[in-house]
Simulated assay, not measured.
Amino acid sequence: MKKAHKVRVGISIGDLNGIGSEVILKTFADQRMLDFCTPVIFANNKLLSFYKKHFKMNINFQGVDDAQKIIDGKFNVVNIWKDNLKINFGEEDKFLGKFTLQSLEAATQALKKGDIDTLVTAPINKNVIQSDKFNFPGHTDYLAKHLGGGESLMFMISQNLKVGLLTDHVAVKEVSEVITPSLIEKKVNMISNSLKADFKVRKPKIAILGINPHSGDNGVIGKEDEEVLKPTIKKLQDKGNLVYGPYAADSFFGTKNYQNFDAVVAAYHDQGLIPFKTLSFGNGVNFTAGLEKVRTSPDHGTAYEIAGKGEADYTSFKEAVFASIEIFKSRKEYEKLTKNPLKKQNKKL
């Protein structure tokens, strides 16, 4: 019988002038990481050698020319370009943005083909990566298009808190227009399915935060909570879902009410991410739920202000790696138990 390989964790390099390279190397400088997975970074041997020398890292990597030639149990570098690149830490560089995109494209294709099992994306600068091939507000939208083309969900996860968003990279003035009963049902179902398949929660209990201050104060501060959220929550409850709310967002986290739920649904980006990062920063992970493949990332950005200085905390990236491994394994177990692949579930949404 052929020996099963370790989980192959693909890694896109992120912004070359940011802290991505540092947190990647710091994570895998610990040889014990190779007991848990086979890391595969999509970049270039020369570039990794430069980073290794700059940060004075004692780390070995194996260069391969194709993702199909990955060596199990080694730190693999898939060479996807031959250019010699000049790195200027902390600076925006649209020329280097082309290579950031090449890394993401190659990693995504390898994930689609099954050459890697999961994908962990290092932070990008959304400005320098923009092009005809990448016209998206972030990784989540790009991967939703290239990994199935369906709905996806920005799901911020940590050991004690999970926050999903109804809207992510949407201007605040447009939030109330975007939130519809259909969207709420889709997102809640995606969170519920993810909690079951990816986190082994048998009967998910989910809280939904109000759209307006004080959840609208019975219609005094906006009508959306009364006319959109409450009827939809009631509909979801009638279908047997343990979904509750809307809760006033200003007190929900301070009173630790979030501890009573398996996940929290926020109406918009900052409503969910500010408390999440306050409570979990450095240990949180950005997980793209709803996709047929597993993708995670650290909960921070390129951090130009400290790039190249050796000061970056790699905890969140390391947590993103472990989260991708655990979600991949959990999903496999769930599919075996239910004999109902996640792909089939998502089609029902």
Rank of each mutant, 00 (worst) to 15 (best):
L47K: 02
K293T: 08
S297K: 04
V265N: 00
I129V: 15
T121Q: 12
I206W: 00
R202G: 02
M1I: 13
A106S: 14
K3G: 03
L34H: 11
K3W: 12
G148F: 03
F55I: 14
A107K: 03
L111H: 06
T288M: 07
L342Q: 08
G14I: 06
G210W: 05
D141T: 07
L104P: 04
D262R: 00
Y142L: 13
K3D: 05
I211S: 01
A171W: 08
L153W: 00
N257P: 04
S182F: 12
H169K: 12
H146W: 10
Y247H: 11
T118W: 05
L25W: 07
I184F: 07
K112V: 14
E92R: 15
V23M: 06
Y51S: 06
D93G: 06
T302M: 06
D141M: 06
S192R: 14
P137I: 13
Q62S: 08
R295N: 03
V77D: 03
R8L: 13
L111I: 13
I274G: 03
P231W: 09
T27V: 11
E305D: 14
G90V: 06
K52A: 08
V220E: 12
K196S: 02
I274W: 03
D141L: 04
F134V: 11
R32E: 15
K348F: 05
L337S: 09
V77A: 04
Y244S: 15
V321W: 03
F276R: 01
